[in-house]
Structures are given as structure tokens and as C-alpha cells.
Design a binder for these strands. Structure first.
Lengths: 405, 405
DNA sequence: GGCAGTTTGTTCGAGGTCTGAATTATATGT
DNA sequence: ACATATAATTCAGACCTCGAACAAACTGCC
């Protein structure tokens, strides 16, 4: 049971009941479409008369549309309702260290258009670039009503000020993206950390999380990020700085991390860690004296995955080591938070068949006293969880639970 | 924003608005008493007429009482409202490995009566003992209407079946306390893990958590437990097994823990760890051959704290080591969850002045890239957080936010 | 003492919402 | 054509909040 937050709460007015039921009906239509009014009454437990009133409202507001008639063995045929995919568009922006993607989707979070461009290293130049592109993107679709813009960032975002606090792989600090984008487009803008966006994407759009109210999304790339959802809601912590499990130290005397701490989880299980390890063990075999590691000589994580798929013993070793340390970190998450599901996002999911048994072994070894109830699965990367998650930020406003009490 | 849980949700009826506002008013009276109707209207934002209707209902149901008149420089004097402390009693039960305490409190969670007895090692004998004592406890207060019984347990409690899954320090497994107590007393019974109960006590009754919606309670005793509150609500995880941060491994090759894993946090920072360490370093000095450690010869944590207060160098060393490792674990919690507050419960809080700077140093060393926003404070142990938390389990039902959508 | 000004608390009609029974609409099978 | 079944709408009744008007109670000032 939730404690009432007496510092910021909403009392109920005469319209509160409608607000609650409207959101329930709208979310039911979203997830069960096509669906009839009678179905909605059965699913929700509301009276058919109430459902009719609510759907009439949703129809006039163009949130939904009426479709074909259904088929039944007996009786009057039901008229199916759908989300009105043409009503509105949501823009998702996925900022990554090298590339930035802008995408337009309908209310079903199906992509309609997208474009990508190089991410400029300078934050100010980038913002100018992005806002200009967003403006022309919007102009290019004059017939669409835009609900808002969601932005996923590779770094820590303050949940109150909505500023980017720090993005290590971009080298940006204290950047305000929300204000310039809002000013340039006049739309609602939400900024969120990439791991949090992935967690949202999973819970809002992935069937595998059906009915789950808690899960953790682990993004494995240059570093490791964790987006945590508990009780159906993002865990943000004091000013949005939760989710830095990637910087929990697994070994006090381990290698020095960018964050200044030693032996962080991401020093063992990130792509960067795998690349460094691969360079270390191949150099050790080929030429011990080549101690200056040229950046351009380093393989990419995709190279290593490709080599391991072809049976290269050292690449396999590196990937398996990465799997092992992913398992170590997961065991921490399972002990402490015990989510229903952990979703892994990143290139490493390509090698899932190889690392899954390793992860399971580590978990069983490290959690001997209790069965592991957490499902650990790879993300379906083609679904673009970062982009879809940034869209969920906007969709939530209409489809999420109302804020009462 | 919370996602609507379509597997179990509540639609709004015509009474939902009243339910919401009633709980807001009742919680405002609880926290701000004495308070007038006009104050409530200002605090809640509801109309004075609405507040009058709600308070009238609360008065007839005897949840609240009218008290004295207030004083104002001008105008009609307000009539103060209070919680009706005589309306109802809540029974809290705190089960610990050696002793069990039963306490009766009023709606303000002020203790009226309490009794303690030895905890029987045999679960069945214990249940019989407890239910008999509860029955006579209730008979002894025939004029009180009991709201329910909350039980705090030193072990893992399944949040769905409400069974005790495992209590290592009692050696109990799969014990159902709820059903026999409900049967014996006819009252609502809630069972919860001790750390979770402490977290609830903190958020419901401690002024220091005013306005906070997230905190972690860390119980330091034989082991280490973590009760986590996020978004104003207990984090339970898959079937209530969250909060086992005490069994996260800090060192893969550390000492073997009861749980079967190596180098768990509680192997370094619990009372047991401190006692073992003290025995190790004193034996090392006195007689290296005395390798059989007689249980009865071991000092208690209170002994060690007492010695350290008197300046015993080895006791001080052990306490400072414990402080260091508490800091190590806290840095994990701050990285991953970043709660507004961490509250420490246990005998170690007696040495707070000594260990606080050590903990702060560890946190600053391990979280170099961002300021630590989390306040770390000792619990006020005389407030009996375990007992009060078990009472909060029952109070929540009436004072918590309603379950809508 | 009486009156103006102020604040508390209640009363009552208006408007929004859900429920549940009755009604209308539409389809199938005999 | 008629019985049966299901979908969807209509409408009175009950509950709720709002907001204006009103009554109650108190202070200060003339």
C-alpha cells in the first residue's frame, strides 16, 4: 500500500472517476484492440452504459475509431474499436555517442518515419543541429498532431530539473536539452536516461512483460546502465540518480574506472571491458612488448562477436568471461531487487545462446539458498527499445494511471 | 507515471472520489492534529463544505473526535479535530530469535501495553504459545476494538502467500503464521520481514522522513536486512524476496556464508562478523592454539561496543572495521537506488559518532563522480521500529493511498 | 451595548459520474 | 415468423464535489 504524499497530492473531484475509468478503457483498447464495447465492459467490470459513454467521449476526441463488425455465433455483431493511429504522432529521439536518431511513430508506437545523423561532440552545436532537424521534421508532416517529443540520453538525467547531469561517453555536463527543444518546437519534451527508456519500452510495448509490474533493463554498451521499474513505475531515486549499478564495485582492488572508483561492474562486463580483455590476451600471445595500445587497432565488440561465432578461441574466451561477469552483476540485482524479469540490451545479445548457460550457472552458484524467480532474457533489439522507450515517456501521460491521493 | 496493471486493477465507482478524499483528510488529521475543518480545507484544497461532510462521516464512524476550541486573533474559533485514540487498537508482534514482544498501540502508534516472552525454537510450539498469549491479551482489553495484528519476522516472507519462507537464525522454513493467528483471534493479520517493517515505521511515523517517498532501512543484527521503499511503497520484488542486499557478495573468495555464497556483505558488516573478527584478533594475540571457539566464550555485540566505548583498542578496531564495511554496502545502495535516506537499525547505532565519519569517507571514495544525496542516519531505537512497522502494516489499510486504476 | 469586520462551519442547488433496469438494435436458427 | 441471444443505448436514482449563500461565533471599536 502506498503512503499518501502530503507534500504533493491530488484530491478527487467529480471528474476523477471518469479520468480513472477513461484511462483504463483507453489502455484496454490499446492492448486488446480490436475490441468491442461489450468486451470492454467485461474486461473492466464497468457497466456497458458507462463504457458506451466513455467510448463516445474517446471517439469525439478522436483517440479511437470504429472499425469493422465482429462475428459471433449468435446475437448482434459487435462493432470493433481501435486506437486512432492517425490522430497523433510521437517523436522519439535516441542520442548515442556516435549517431542520433529521430523517429516518428503513431499511437501504437509503430514507426512511420525516421532519420539519423552524426552526434556532434559539442553540446551546443548538437542542440542547434537537433532542434533545426526537429523543426523541419515537424514541417514535413503538417497533417499530424504531435503529442510530444521523448529523448533518450546516454547519461544521468536529473528527474526534477530534466537536465543531463553527466554523460561520460559524450563528455557533456549539466546540459539542458528540454528548454531549447520545447522553445523550438512548442511541444511537450521529456528527457530520460537510456536504460530507463529501455525499461519503459519493455513494460509498455513488449508482450513478454505482460502483467509484470517490476523489471530491470540492463544496457550493455560502452558502460552498463540499469533501468529499474518497481510497482509499475520507474525507480528514479533522489533527483533521478538511481540505476547506477554499473558503478558498484565488484572488487576493491580492481582496475580504475572512469567514475574514479575501482573494479566497477562495468569494468568487467561492458563492451569496453571485453575489448580491452581481448586486446590484452591477444597481445600477450603475439607480442608482449606492444604495450602501447593504439585505439584504432582495437577491435569493436561486433568484431569480437563475429570472431567468436567463427570459433576463435580467444574471442570465445572473452565473450564467456563477459557472460560470467554479467551473471555476477545480475546476482546482485536478483538478491537486492528480485525483479520478475531482467532484459539485456546490447550487442552481446547476439551471443545469447553461448552466454545464457554461463549466466544461469553463476546465478545458481551465487543464490544457493533460494530459487531464482527472475527471468533473464535478451531484448529484441530490432524493436529499438531506446527509441520506443522515449516514446513511452510521452504515451504515459495519456495511458498511465492517474495521479490521485 | 505508473502503468495501469491490467491483470488486477480497480475501476472507479461513484464512491471512489469520497474514498480518495476521505483518506487524504484522515491522513492529514493523523499527521497535523490538532487541526480544524478550515485548516483541512486549506491543506487539502477541497471545499469547506466537502471537508465538513467527510469529517462528519469520520466522526460518526468514530475515527476522529472533536476537541477544544482554538484561538485566533479574529473571527469564530475553530474546533479542533483529533484521531480518536480510543477507537481502536493495533497489535504489533515482533518475533526475534531469542525474545518475542507483543504490544498494543492506539491509532497514533503510541504503546498502551506490551509483554515479552522467550521465542521457542520449535515453530509449532511457538505458534501455539503466541496464539494463546494473543487471545488472553485481547480478552484483557475487552473495551478495545482491534483493527488487526501486524507481525514482524526475522526472515524472508512471501508477499503473496504471506508465509515465512526461511528464517536462518530461527531455522524455520515454510511456516504459515497468518492462518493460525487469524483463526485464533478472528482479526486481520499481516506478516512482514523485519527490515521491511522498519522501513515502514520510518516512513509512517518518523518526522525525519517527512515528505520523503523513498528510503532504505538497513537492519544490522545477526545478519543484514534491507527494507526498501520507493515511490512511497514497499519494494517487494517477485513474491516478496527483494531486499537481500545483505547476501550480495563483496568478495568472491571471501568467507562462506550461511546462504552458501562467499563473501556476502553480512559476512563483513553484521554483528556476527564483528564478534567473529573480535575473537579472531584477540585469540591471535593471546593464544594462537585456542582454535576451538567456544560459543559461550564469545562476547556479545554489546560487550564489544562497551569495550570500544572504554577505549579498548581491539574493540575499537573491530567497530571501525564494521563501519567501513557498512559504508561499502551503503555505497552499493546509493549507486543503485539512490534513496533520499538510509536508516540504520541495530546495536551499532550506539557507536554512531565513531562510525559516521568512516561511512562518509567510504561513500565519498566510492562515489567520486557524483555528490551523495542520500542522508544516512541511525534509527531511534527506543521507538521500536520493528513493532511500530508491524503496526503500520495494519494502519496502511485505512491511512494509505487507495488502490485505483 | 451595539455594530462592523472576520473567520468557521453548514446548507442547498447545480453539475458530473456510475449503476442497473428497461429498451432498442441486430443477428442466428427453427 | 418467432424465439433466443448478444450488443449498445436510454434514463432514473444515488453519490460526489463545487460554490454561493447563510448561520454561528468571536474581536475590536464606537
Amino acid at each position: 500500500m502506498r503512503k499518501i504524499d502530503l507534500t504533493s497530492f491530488n484530491v478527487a473531484t467529480s471528474e476523477t472517476a471518469r479520468n480513472i475509468n477513461r484511462r483504463i478503457i483507453l489502455d484496454l483498447i490499446r492492448t486488446r484492440q480490436p475490441v468491442s464495447r461489450a468486451d470492454l465492459a467485461r474486461l473492466s467490470g464497468l457497466q456497458r452504459s458507462t463504457v458506451s459513454l466513455i467510448t463516445e467521449q474517446l471517439l469525439t476526441e478522436q483517440w479511437i475509431t470504429q472499425g469493422a463488425l465482429g462475428h459471433l455465433p449468435r446475437g448482434r455483431k459487435p462493432r470493433f474499436l481501435h486506437l486512432n493511429v492517425e490522430r497523433a504522432g510521437i517523436i522519439g529521439v535516441n542520442v548515442r555517442p556516435t549517431m542520433t536518431t529521430i523517429a516518428l511513430a503513431n499511437l501504437n508506437a509503430q514507426f512511420i518515419a525516421h532519420e539519423s545523423f552524426q552526434t556532434n561532440n559539442d553540446a551546443n552545436v548538437f542542440i542547434e543541429d537537433l532542434t533545426r532537424r526537429l523543426q523541419s521534421f515537424i514541417k514535413f508532416h503538417p497533417d499530424i498532431y504531435f503529442e510530444g517529443i521523448g529523448v533518450s540520453m546516454p547519461g544521468r538525467v536529473d528527474s526534477i530539473s530534466k537536465k543531463l547531469v553527466f554523460a561520460p561517453n559524450l563528455g557533456w555536463r549539466d546540459v539542458d536539452l528540454q528548454t531549447p527543444i520545447e522553445r523550438a518546437t512548442g511541444l511537450l519534451v521529456e528527457i530520460e536516461n537510456a536504460a530507463n527508456a529501455c525499461a519503459l519500452a519493455e513494460i509498455w510495448f513488449d508482450r513478454r512483460s505482460n502483467g509484470m509490474q517490476d523489471l530491470i533493463a540492463v544496457t550493455v554498451s560502452e558502460g552498463i546502465g540499469t533501468g529499474i521499474i518497481t510497482n509499475g513505475q520507474l525507480l528514479r531515486g533522489a533527483s533521478g540518480t538511481a540505476g547506477e549499478f554499473g558503478h558498484v564495485s565488484l572488487n576493491e582492488s580492481g582496475p580504475l574506472c572512469k567514475c574514479g572508483n575501482h573494479g566497477c561492474w562495468e569494468m568487467y562486463a561492458s563492451n569496453t571491458a571485453a575489448i580491452n580483455e581481448y586486446v590484452r590476451i591477444t597481445n600477450g600471445a603475439n607480442s608482449k612488448k606492444r604495450d602501447i595500445q593504439d585505439e584504432s587497432n582495437k577491435p569493436s565488440i561486433d568484431d569480437i562477436l563475429h570472431l567468436s561465432e567463427q570459433g576463435d578461441a580467444k574471442a570465445v574466451e572473452v565473450i564467456e568471461r563477459m557472460g560470467h561477469y554479467l551473471g555476477v552483476g545480475f546476482s546482485m540485482l536478483v538478491s537486492g531487487i528480485s525483479p520478475s524479469m531482467i532484459v539485456v540490451i546490447g550487442e552481446i545479445t547476439r551471443a545469447w545462446e553461448r552466454i545464457e548457460p554461463i549466466i544461469k550457472n553463476v546465478l545458481n552458484a551465487r543464490l544457493p539458498s533460494s530459487p531464482v524467480l527472475t527471468r533473464i532474457i535478451p531484448s529484441q533489439d530490432n524493436l529499438q527499445p531506446r527509441l520506443r522507450g522515449s516514446m513511452a515517456l510521452i504515451l504515459q501521460k495519456h495511458f498511465g494511471a492517474p495521479l490521485t491521493a
